[in-house]
Design a protein around this nucleic acid. Structure first.
Length: 360
DNA sequence: CGCGTTTGACCAGCGC
DNA sequence: GCGCTGGTCAAACGCG
């Protein structure tokens, strides 16, 4: 049923500052190049450090200005520049998004790490892009079950379809499910990753059940829809391969896990505790540099790209986040490694400058 | 048998 | 209003 169109519009929505073209062939800059750290497996194999549990999403991204090494972001110029963000609409909203980002990031890190081990991550170059996370209405109150279709209300469309189905009834069409009308579907914040990988569905530690697959417009590759199989957890994710760069897998997470990661070997803290980290008074929510572009109560989505390249720098990556003070040592060789391995792509130039100024 | 995948149909939202 | 598209449902199926 999927018809192709000439419509060049990307299937995913992007922030205005980030044209879809950033996906193309990795030509765009990378938001960050995530080393193969882990989330659920977390500390395992990465030195056993617990940077996951103690750092928020922005910390992971190196956005916490307090710890930003000036040289860390010098190569970020190629990234789309985000103008200074307005104040967050609400801390709760921020927390929700952060939490989500943290989850996703954690997932991704884990995935990448696994891929590293599997040798499935190919690209030696980081191509990162921010993308999509959407918050529609009620951003502060995640409604993972908002897609419920329970209702006695029958839409005109339903009637129409039913009527039409009458003809097809003989073909054993499934009964139509009445869905709620006048009730816009609420979407969880979304967060997308681009990953250089031959594997479409990356194992991030959670258990996912595939519930759909659709052909993607202007793309020869289908998009798969997954849902967290844990009861009560409405987290979903979409996985699709970039048509521009077939080696790139775009994974979009939606929602927040309401449970710890089922795979937590070595007693890892993982990000199962990240919820608490957000509610903790000590948890400082950084300036929402990524969340400024809100329109119609909608947080623009952002894409983060991961590649295999920096997976080769796991140790440094780990140290990067875990050992913050090192950031202040520009002479550190380790820093250099990190510099080129990860955060260089994470933080927009303006932020870097801001950080610089603060340091001085 | 339980769980996950496949796949076609259905539905809602959006743009024209 | 209509068509397109993304997202979801759920029966059928496969696998361990």
């Amino acid at each position: 049923m999927e018809k192709k169109q000439d419509n060049p519009t990307a299937s995913m929505r992007f922030p205005d500052e980030i044209p879809p073209s950033v996906f193309g062939g990795g030509g765009g800059g990378s938001i960050f190049d995530m080393a193969g750290a882990s989330s659920c497996e977390a500390s395992g194999g990465v030195g056993g450090d617990k940077w996951w549990g103690s750092l928020g999403f922005m910390d992971l991204l190196g956005i916490h200005q307090d710890f930003v090494a000036p040289s860390l972001f010098d190569s970020f110029n190629h990234l789309p520049i985000l103008p200074p963000p307005p104040p967050p609409s609400s801390s709760a909203e921020l927390a929700a998004v952060f939490h989500h980002h943290h989850d996703v990031l954690s997932n991704k890190l884990d995935t990448n790490r696994q891929q590293l081990h599997q040798g499935s991550l190919l690209s030696p170059v980081a191509s990162t892009v921010p993308e999509s996370s959407e918050v529609l209405n009620n951003p502060a109150t995640p409604n993972s079950s908002s897609i419920s279709s329970s209702s006695n209300e029958v839409t005109a469309n339903d009637e129409q379809n039913k009527a039409g189905d009458q003809d097809d009834a003989d073909k054993t069409k499934k009964p139509l499910k009445p869905k709620k009308k006048n009730q816009k579907r609420q979407r969880e914040p979304r967060f997308a990753f681009m990953t250089k990988s031959e594997i479409d569905h990356l194992d991030d530690g959670y258990r996912w059940r595939k519930y759909g697959q659709k052909a993607v417009k202007n793309s020869p590759y289908p998009r798969s829809y997954y849902r967290c199989t844990t009861a009560g957890c409405g987290v979903k994710k979409r996985v699709e391969r970039s048509s521009d760069d077939p080696t790139t897998v775009v994974t979009t997470y939606e929602g927040q896990h309401t449970h710890p990661c089922p795979i937590m070997p070595r007693g890892t803290i993982g990000f199962a505790i990240d919820s608490s980290s957000f509610s903790s008074p000590s948890f400082a929510i950084p300036q929402p540099q990524y969340l400024h572009h809100q329109q119609q109560q909608q947080l623009q989505p952002y894409i983060y790209t991961t590649t295999s390249s920096n997976l080769n720098h796991q140790p440094s990556f780990n140290g990067l986040f875990q050992d913050k003070p090192r950031f202040n040592n520009p002479n550190s060789s380790a820093l250099t490694l990190r510099d080129h391995g990860l955060l260089q792509d994470i933080v927009p130039t303006p932020m870097r400058r801001e950080a610089k100024e603060e340091d001085q």
